[in-house]
């Protein structure tokens, strides 16, 4: 009997402590550690984003740890577990999935750790403190207008899409089509995802060329895919015949535009976005609380005509 009472009391005590522990509020912040969580470091553009975020946070006096999510929401969630356990002061976050990443940010918020999104958004406006995003739609409207101009309003083309779980993929494609679809003599003969990956884009392009050997242009949702597509076209001896358009402002495409190989890209500003995120985190830690939830950062059209104004990942200022 005494043993049973003891077990009962212990079980109830355990339950009480567990429930009480789950409801604890945000912990006091004494950390000078900032976490930089990047969707993938397998793409030079994101390496620039990471370096700029890390550099600015360190310049502001924080110790920085970098977490590579390898394009995996599961890996990303694991990083957030580590960050929450490690009591970081803030998270500079480049999400893998606009929907799937919300839960991780919510958990961080519950643990009292503010999150600042960079480049990509999460589809919620009540969990991150601020989201500094590329205005991909508007950037691709400009790209689409230039695309129409260069093709003279007619021809056949291919579109290579990025990761389907990334809102940027949809924003870029929608912006492009909001212009191009008004020109009935411009026909899209194929549209496939290559996951923002250069190698995959090359493979997809090779496959598409077998079915559609006489296209006039290809629009790629990022520069890595543009380079992959260009490589496939060059191998097929069609690089002179087919115009390639990218999006990002990556070094190899900027060089390729300068060389006349690629027609245009949309310049995003990863260094600007990363620095803004780091500075916002610093301001938050120091007490500021009123931040705009979404801050679009304009994307600029880079062509062979204005290439002298630009360098890799930014303007030549």
């Amino acid at each position: 009997m005494a043993k049973k009472v003891f077990v009962l009391v212990t079980a109830l005590l355990f339950v009480t402590l567990w429930v009480g522990g789950c409801r604890k509020g945000p912990q006091p912040d004494a950390s000078r550690k900032v976490a930089v969580v990047i969707s993938t470091l397998n793409n030079p553009w994101f390496v620039v984003l990471k370096d700029a975020a890390k550099g600015r946070a360190e310049a502001l006096g924080y110790e920085v740890d970098v977490f590579d999510s390898q394009n995996s929401p599961a890996t990303e969630a694991g990083h957030f577990d580590t960050i929450i356990d490690g009591k970081y002061a803030a998270i500079l976050f480049n999400p893998t999935d606009a929907e799937g990443s919300i839960a991780s940010v919510r958990r961080a918020k519950g643990a009292g750790i503010p999150t600042f999104c960079m480049d990509r958004e999460i589809s919620a406006n009540d969990v991150a403190i601020s989201q500094i995003l590329s205005d991909n739609f508007t950037g691709c409207v400009a790209l689409g207008e230039y695309f129409v101009e260069k093709l003279g309003g007619k021809g056949t083309y291919v579109e290579l899409l990025g990761l389907l779980g990334d809102n940027n993929t949809r924003n870029r494609s929608d912006g492009f089509h909001s212009v191009v679809d008004n020109h009935p003599e411009l026909k899209m003969v194929a549209q496939q995802t290559a996951d923002f990956d250069r190698t995959k884009a090359m493979e997809v392009m090779e496959s598409i060329l077998q079915a559609h050997p006489d296209i006039d242009a290809v629009f790629c949702g990022n520069d890595a895919m543009a380079m992959g597509a260009y490589r496939a076209l060059a191998t097929a001896g069609k690089d002179e015949q087919v115009m390639v358009f990218g999006f990002d402002g990556a070094k190899d495409v900027i060089d390729a535009i300068r060389a006349g190989d690629i027609v245009a890209t949309g310049m995003q500003f990863p260094k600007t976005m990363a620095q803004m995120a780091a500075e916002s985190a610093d301001q938050y830690i120091k007490g500021k609380r009123d931040f705009p939830q979404k801050v679009p950062v304009a994307v600029e059209l880079v062509t062979q005509e204005n290439i002298d104004k630009y360098i890799a990942y930014g303007r030549d200022e």
Partner: peptide, 10 residues
């Protein structure tokens, strides 16, 4: 900032 995602805004 009033929209949960920028696709709605666009």
């Amino acid at each position: 900032s009033a929209f949960s995602d920028t696709m709605k805004f666009n």
